[in-house]
C-alpha cells in the first residue's frame, strides 16, 4: 500500500531524513516512534506530499508521490490524515467540517455528504454535537471529529501525526479507543505516536527513528521484547517508566 524507498530530505546542510525505507502492507498498522526532532512527523508528511523530499521515492497505492506529474490533490483525497492540533476549520460547524471536502473534492451531493458525515460522527460518539462549532468542543472531541472527517472521504489508508500529544491526559483514551477500533476493522494505518500501550495493543510493526534515520523496523513483539539499538532501549526505558 505504502512503499517508501531511500527517501532523504534536507534543509540546507541539515538532514531531516536520511535514506529512509519501509513499507506498509494493506491492513497493516505501523507505529512510528522516536525522540522529538527525529524526523518522524516529517516522514509521515512526505507520504501524502505535504512535505517535499529531495531524493528517493514514495509509492502510495501505485502512485508516485514525488513525481511532478502526479495529481497530489487527488492522491491526498484518498489518504486520510489526522493532525496533532486537530485542524478542524473553526468557522464551520461540525457537520460542515465533515461535509465540505466530500462535496468540493469528491463531488458528492449535499445530502449524501451530510448523511455520511453524521453516520461517522455517530460512530465516534459525537452525534449530539453535530450543530456545534469546533471551538465549543474539548480537545478529545475535536480530535474524534477530525478522525471522522478523514474517514468521510473513504480513505484507502490513514496517517496519524501525533494525534494525542496535544491532549490533556484524561482525553487521550477516548481518541485511542477510536483508533483501536479502526485498526481492528482492518484499516491500513501509519501512526506517529508515543503511546506505547496503543502500539502493544494493535500495531503489527514498530518503526523507531533517530536523527532522521530509521533505526529499527521490526514486528511489535521483537521491538518490545528486545530492541536492538541502544537509542531505542533508552527511549523505551524513558517512556515506559513515565
Amino acid at each position: 500500500m505504502i512503499k517508501i524507498s531511500n527517501v532523504s530530505k534536507n534543509y540546507g546542510a541539515f538532514d531531516v531524513l536520511k535514506d529512509c525505507s519501509t513499507t506498509v502492507q494493506k491492513g497493516e498498522v505501523v507505529v512510528v516512534c522516536g525522540p522529538s526532532g527525529s524526523g518522524k512527523s516529517t516522514l509521515i508528511k512526505c507520504v501524502n506530499g505535504l512535505e517535499p523530499f529531495q531524493s528517493g521515492e514514495i509509492i502510495v497505492d501505485g502512485t508516485s508521490v514525488g513525481d511532478p506529474k502526479t495529481n497530489l490533490s487527488k492522491l491526498r483525497s484518498r489518504v486520510g490524515m489526522v493532525f496533532q492540533h486537530f485542524e478542524l476549520f473553526p468557522h464551520m460547524s461540525i457537520t460542515e467540517n465533515l461535509a465540505i471536502a466530500q462535496i468540493k473534492v469528491l463531488g458528492r451531493k449535499q445530502d449524501e455528504a451530510m448523511d455520511k458525515g453524521l453516520k461517522l460522527l455517530d460512530r465516534v460518539g459525537l452525534k449530539a454535537h453535530a450543530h456545534k462549532f469546533p471551538g465549543q468542543l474539548s480537545g478529545g472531541q475535536q480530535q474524534r471529529v477530525a478522525i471522522a472527517r478523514a474517514l468521510a472521504m473513504d480513505p484507502i489508508c490513514m496517517l496519524f501525526d501525533e494525534p494525542t500529544s496535544a491532549l490533556d491526559p484524561e482525553m487521550i483514551n477516548e481518541v485511542l479507543d477510536v483508533m483501536t477500533e479502526l485498526a481492528q476493522e482492518g484499516m491500513t494505518m501509519m501512526c506517529v505516536t508515543h503511546e506505547m500501550g496503543f502500539a502493544k495493543r494493535v500495531a503489527n510493526r514498530v518503526i523507531f527513528m533517530d536523527h532522521g534515520r530509521i533505526v529499527e523496523d521490526d514486528s511489535k513483539e521483537a521491538f518490545f521484547a528486545n530492541p536492538r539499538s541502544e537509542r531505542a532501549q533508552q527511549f523505551l526505558a524513558k517512556i515506559l517508566h513515565h
Binding site: 490533490s73 491526498r76 483525497s77 476549520f89 468540493k104
Partner: peptide, 29 residues
C-alpha cells in the same frame, strides 16, 4: 496555524480551494 493549510491540502483540496474554503474565511474574520 500552518496546520490549517496542511489539513485543507490533506483532504484533497487544491491550493486555491484551500485558500477559498479554509484560509481566507478565517483570515478575513
Amino acid at each position: 496555524p500552518k496546520g490549517q493549510k496542511n489539513a485543507g491540502l490533506a483532504l484533497g483540496f487544491t491550493l486555491p480551494q484551500t485558500y477559498r474554503f479554509v484560509i481566507l474565511p478565517m483570515a478575513f474574520r
